[in-house]
Simulated assay, not measured.
Amino acid sequence: MSVDAAAPVVRRTCFTDGTVGTQCGQFINDFCNSVTANVAFGNNQARCYNTPNFKCDLGAFYEFSADAAPPPAIPSVVNCVNTLNNVTNTCGGLGGFGNVAGGGFTFSLDPNQGQCGQLEAPAGN
């Protein structure tokens, strides 16, 4: 008899306003598989993806560690995918952020107006 490992516990917070971008979910696997370099503690890796009507900002922030001076680390692809799929499936297209219990990284998915490389909103006059 085999015992399956329990699914990781994903904690997430949904954004409550902003751009609704249900199309951002299509970029999760690409983003999570692209974060292959070490990230220093307190830093992040992020990517921006364009859709025809808005952009999707995805990020992996090395936020939690039990070590006083943690070494750089590579985010878990599985934790990234599980967290961002949870955000996509439960946040109504507004995006959000979260992590897997015990993991060091917080993952975020944020739809925004405009296209990658542009400001999200023009400066006020």
Results as ranks from 00 to 15, higher is better:
S2L: 09
V3C: 03
D4S: 15
D4T: 12
A5S: 02
P8W: 00
V9M: 10
V9N: 12
V9S: 06
V10S: 05
R11I: 11
R11E: 06
R12F: 15
R12M: 12
T13I: 15
C14Y: 13
C14M: 11
C14H: 07
F15Q: 04
T16D: 13
D17E: 15
G18R: 13
G18Y: 09
G18P: 04
G21M: 08
G21Y: 05
T22Q: 14
Q23H: 08
Q23Y: 11
C24Q: 12
N29G: 06
D30L: 11
C32V: 00
V35Q: 10
A37W: 12
A37V: 12
G42T: 03
Q45N: 11
Q45S: 11
A46E: 13
R47A: 10
C48K: 07
N50K: 15
P52C: 08
N53T: 12
K55E: 10
C56E: 08
D57Q: 08
D57K: 09
G59H: 06
F61K: 09
F61Q: 07
F64M: 00
S65M: 11
A66P: 02
A66L: 07
A68I: 06
A69E: 05
A69L: 02
P71W: 05
P72K: 07
A73Q: 11
P75D: 10
V77S: 03
C80Y: 07
C80L: 02
V81A: 04
V81I: 03
V81N: 03
N82Q: 14
T83C: 01
T83G: 00
L84D: 09
N85W: 01
N86E: 06
T88R: 13
T88S: 15
N89H: 12
N89T: 13
C91Y: 03
G92K: 01
L94F: 15
G95P: 13
F97T: 06
N99W: 15
N99R: 13
V100F: 00
G103K: 09
G103S: 14
G104Y: 06
F105K: 07
F105P: 03
F105Q: 09
T106H: 00
S108H: 12
S108P: 08
L109V: 05
D110I: 06
P111Q: 02
N112S: 14
G114V: 07
Q115V: 02
G117N: 00
L119A: 12
L119Q: 13
E120K: 05
P122A: 09
P122N: 08
